[in-house]
Computed example of a mutant assay.
Amino acid sequence: MGNMLLMVHLALPHGAPSLADAVVAAVCTGMAAGELVPDDTYSVYQLADLLGVSRSPVREALLRLAEAGLVRIDRNRGFRVLTPHAHDIEEIIEIRLALEPVAARRAAEEATDEEHAGIGETLAAMDRALEDDERFWVADRALHDRLMRAGGNQRAASIIDRLRATTALLGPPTTTAGRTLREIRDEHEPIVTAILRRDGEGAERAMREHLERTGRLLASSLARTTSPGRS
């Protein structure tokens, strides 16, 4: 059985897209605040009761968190929270580097004019969202997804989308490391410009540079927020 959660203070956030998303956010907040600690085992049933939801969204949320490496589910016992590491980010960026630069080249060389127009519009959506973090990250995610799908590999696009969702769970965005939304938008511009010019080599190079910089900043940001002495 898991530890009692009666002394743990967790709450569902408002405005989450689904109950499972809300549970994910509540658990992540609890981990960041030290309410949920790595050495303890917690009960799925007690977590559901504490948050006032059924067990189904709790189980879905824990499966997502387990996929991200943030919890370990012990069958018939409960779950433990795990401390994320910079290496987790490095592994994700390594996979993205194997897929996205090549997709950017293909999008430049093989995508239709209509697909190119959609990519350009998504960059414009990032421009319009520079004062709104939530809208900006939606546009950022959409741009990478459009690039991947225009590159002709739908499965790879789905993989990248899941990896980006996992990255969002692992730690704070790179804006916490001093990079502004404007700077992030500006890193995407040479990628899109090269694609619209059908410059495959330039698109591949710009995407690689963007991902490498993002990876360095994410790993650095995660390392700063991870408590020393935890493994």
Rank of each mutant, 00 (worst) to 15 (best):
A125E: 11
A32F: 07
S54G: 15
E204M: 12
R96Y: 08
I89G: 03
D133Y: 10
V81Y: 00
E201M: 13
L19V: 09
S18Y: 07
A206P: 00
L222I: 12
L10T: 01
R205I: 13
A117S: 13
A219P: 03
V24A: 02
E114M: 11
R105E: 13
L36H: 05
E189K: 14
L12N: 08
R230Y: 12
V71I: 00
I95T: 14
H85V: 04
S56W: 13
A117V: 09
L222K: 02
E201L: 14
M7G: 09
M126C: 02
L62K: 01
E187H: 12
L169Q: 12
W137E: 11
L217P: 07
L169A: 11
R146N: 08
T176E: 15
E114C: 09
A142W: 02
A32D: 14
D88W: 02
L143A: 10
R224W: 02
E209M: 08
T122D: 01
E94T: 15
A33E: 15
A150Y: 00
I93T: 01
L196T: 03
A124Q: 13
G200V: 08
M1G: 13
E204V: 08
H85Q: 14
A104D: 08
E94P: 09
L218H: 12
A194I: 06
P84Q: 01
A117H: 11
H210D: 03
G52W: 11
A98Q: 10
D39L: 10
P190T: 08
A25R: 05
G200L: 06
I89D: 09
E212I: 11
L5A: 01
I93P: 03
D40M: 13
L170M: 01
L181W: 03
M148P: 03
H85M: 12
L196F: 07
H188R: 06
P173S: 10
M148E: 03
R149Y: 06
G30V: 07
G30L: 09
S56K: 15
A103V: 04
H87F: 13
H188N: 11
V27P: 00
S158T: 09
R146L: 14
D140I: 00
D161Q: 14
R185P: 04
E189M: 12
E183Q: 15
R230A: 12
S158F: 10
A108E: 06
E94D: 15
G52I: 10
D21E: 15
R55F: 10
R162T: 12
A157G: 05
E90S: 02
S220P: 00
D133G: 08
E115L: 10
P228L: 02
